[in-house]
Design a protein around this nucleic acid. Structure first.
Lengths: 226, 226
DNA sequence: TAGATTGTTAATCGATTAACAATC
DNA sequence: TAGATTGTTAATCGATTAACAATC
C-alpha cells in the first residue's frame, strides 16, 4: 500500500477536542488488532469497535493526515503508530499517584499502564501506617516530601486519589511543584491556573447520569414548584 | 422568597445531554452548601464551583423550571431538591458490582454512595478465593449466580470491574438479567442493545488525553507519512 | 430608588451526519 | 472493469456565549 507523503505540519490545536477524546479509543482497538496480526481495518470496523459512526472515524483520522487507502482501508500498524504519535505516547509519561487508599492501590497495580503510554514513578500518602509500605516496585513515600519526590521522580502527570477534603491542598502543591496535568478522583472541582489541565473522574456522577436515564424510562420529570 | 408555581410537566428528553452531565456537579456543590446552612446561591457562585460559565448554569437550571429569584439568586435547599428530583435521586438506586478486585473493593467501600443516591446491594466475583469474603455489609457471591442475585437483590444498575477479557460476557448476562444501566471500568467497548445505557470509565483514556495536551505544549504534531 | 441577578433571546461556535466524487 | 472504501463537502444539529430586558 502506498501512502501519501505528508506535506507539512499540523498544529496540535487543529485537532478538535471531540477527536482527541476518541483517538484513545481507536488506539485501544488498534492495539488489539496489531496483537492479532491483523493488517488492514476499515473505518466501519473501527466505528463498530468504538461505538461511533464510520463518518466520525474517517473525519477523526483525516485530522492526522491522509492515512487510508480508498477501496482498501487503513494499515493497522501504520495507523496505530500515527495515533500513538499524535497522542504523544511514543515515550512513557511518568505519573505520580497521591493517596494510596484502595483506589490508589487499584490504579497503582493496573497492568495496562505500560502498554498504554504511562509509568507510575511515585506513590504518596499522608498516613504514617501507609508510608513505607511496598506496592509492586514502589515504596509509598510521605506526602510531606511531595515537592522533592515530584522533582526526583520526574513525574509530569499527577493522579489525586485522596479524600475530597485534602484534594485541593494536594492539587495546589502539585501545581506549585510544576505538574500541569492532573486526573482527579476526589469528588470536588479543583481550582487551578488556566495552564493546568484537570480531568475529573467521579463514579457517582456516572451513576447519576444513568439514574436520570433510568428514571426517564418510566416517568416524566416533575417541574419544581415551591 | 416566592417561587413560581410550575405550569406543567416537562418530558425528560427535553433536558439536553450536556445539562444532564452538569446537574450532578451542581448537586455535589449544593449538597456542601446545604450542609453549611447556606440559604442562597447565585449562578455565578455555582459556576465558579463547577468550572463552567454562569450563563450555562442559568440555562441548565431553567430547564428544571423557573427556580431562581431575579436580583437575589437561588434558594439552596429548594434547588437541591429540584435537581435531586430531576436526576431521579429521591430514592436510592440499588447497584451490583461485578468483579471484586482492588478496584471493585475500592468502589464498594466508597462512603459517598449513600448521600449521592445509590446503595451497593450485591458483589459478585468468579474467584473461589474471593467468593464468601465479607466487604462491609456484603458477602461476595459467585458470578455463576449472577441472574438470581440480580433478581433477589433488585439491582437496577450494574458496575463492571472485571478484566477486559470477561467484561463482555458479564455485560451480556447483566443485560439478559434485565439490567439496562451499566458503568464499565474494563478497557473495552461493550456491545449492548440500543435500550441499554453504558457509561465507560477508563483511566488510561483520561491520561492519554492529558498526554496529548502535555505534548502540545512543546511540539507541533508531525503528520503521518509512510 | 439603585443595584443585583435571573431568564431568555439571538449570534456564534463546534460537532455530527449524509452523501458522493475520488480512487484503490 | 466492478466493487469497495476513503477523504471531503455541505447540511444539520446541538451547545455555548454575550447581551439585556425583566424584576426582585
Amino acid at each position: 500500500m502506498t501512502l501519501r507523503v505528508a506535506t507539512g505540519r499540523r498544529r496540535a490545536g487543529d485537532i478538535p477536542d471531540a477527536t482527541v477524546g476518541r483517538l484513545p479509543v481507536y488506539h485501544r482497538f488498534l492495539t488489539v488488532l496489531a496483537e492479532r496480526q491483523v493488517d488492514i481495518v476499515s473505518s466501519e470496523e473501527i466505528a463498530a469497535a468504538a461505538g461511533v459512526t464510520s463518518a466520525s472515524v474517517r473525519k477523526d483520522l483525516a485530522h492526522l493526515g491522509s492515512n487510508g487507502a480508498r477501496g482498501i482501508g487503513y494499515d493497522v500498524r501504520h495507523l496505530l503508530g500515527c495515533i500513538t504519535r499524535a497522542l504523544g505516547l511514543v515515550d512513557e509519561w511518568p505519573v505520580v499517584i497521591v493517596g494510596v487508599g484502595r483506589l490508589g492501590q487499584a490504579l497503582a497495580s493496573y497492568a495496562g499502564f505500560g502498554t498504554r503510554g504511562f509509568r507510575i514513578v511515585a506513590l504518596l500518602d499522608c498516613d504514617p501506617e501507609c508510608v513505607g509500605t511496598r506496592n509492586g516496585d514502589l515504596t509509598v513515600e510521605s506526602v510531606r516530601d511531595l515537592e522533592s519526590v515530584v522533582r526526583s521522580s520526574g513525574a509530569v502527570i499527577g493522579v489525586i486519589t485522596t479524600p475530597a477534603s485534602s484534594a485541593q491542598g494536594v492539587c495546589d502543591r502539585l501545581v506549585a511543584a510544576g505538574i500541569r496535568s492532573i486526573v482527579n478522583f476526589a469528588p470536588i472541582t479543583l481550582s487551578v491556573p488556566s495552564d493546568v489541565e484537570v480531568r475529573m473522574v467521579d463514579l457517582a456522577v456516572e451513576l447519576q447520569i444513568l439514574a436520570f436515564h433510568e428514571q426517564r424510562r418510566a416517568v416524566a420529570i416533575p417541574e419544581c414548584s415551591a
